[in-house]
Amino acid sequence: MSIDKIWVLAEVADGKTVTASLELISHATTLAGTVEAVAFGDATAAVAATLGEYGATKVHDVGDLGGALPGVPVASAIAAAVASGAGPDAILFPATYDGRDVAGRLSAKIDRPVLTNVVGLAEDGGALVTQHAIFGGTQIASARFTGEGPGLFVVRAKSFPAESRGGGPAEVVAAPAPDAGSTNAARIVARHVEERTGPKLDEADVVVSGGRGLGEKDQYAMIEELAALLHGAPGASRAIVDAGWVPYAYQVGQTGKTVKPTVYLACGISGATQHLVGMKNAKNIVAINKDQDAPIFTVADLGIVGDVHKVVPKLIEALKTRG
């Protein structure tokens, strides 16, 4: 068994391919002879050049979904290709909201298991071997599929660099979704964009995260203010997402996002393994916590043993003074 062909789910947002998909396309070129993308929506033609540049020779275009959530129609289109024998040896999905939906639907449709939370993917003896960060990232588990393909892999963002392969535009081929009946009944009736200034959490150069040590919901405002002053993005520990202080989209950690910024500032975060796995690969970590035994200090390059309610406001004042 060798890996001839890999497909990558290419998600498009605001007319651009999301970085997590480009990471997978460029990494897939190191694993298989042929890399192709699967895309949906009305902007596929517009991103064909980018997909090609990162290594995809072809893009299977499911087309506009007419307001349907992507999970069912996109999985149906891929399942049809697999059933016809035109499918790949492996399919990679970014660990996004829609990527996880498509992978789960497809897994049940074609009766193949799926490996999720992949952070490393290599070829070994003609098969793909995955890596998964477990126990707060202190250990790495390796896994592989034992049954027939195609293998389905959901890969966490930032697992590989997104590198240009210098390819020409990908050829767009139509791959319309077959009718999936009543399973495809969920419809988006309105989209709400929450006003956000500054960079995205998983693309920001600076991330400022707050945790339970903030004490109460209102105190999260200072995390946002500090993030804005540093041109960064605000993040959060699971504890305050669970408590309803900030939405799930802010969560950094095992069940949230993985970030690898130049600087990660952890404010009032104790550093549960759940959190560490999402941020310990930041280039530099600064932690502020009043408990000197907090696990966050075991990964911090600069650890401040102190009260976030004192240190952070002073930091904000000092940054404002600098202008």
Binding site: A133, G137, A141, Q292, F297, T298, D301
Partner: peptide, 22 residues
């Protein structure tokens, strides 16, 4: 189950750095 864990190894450790008491 058509997947198996083939091995588990220690991840690269990240040392702690400077600690400052405020």
């Amino acid at each position: 189950a058509r997947q198996e864990i083939t091995g588990v190894s220690a991840a690269e450790e990240r040392g702690s750095g400077e600690i400052v008491v405020d």
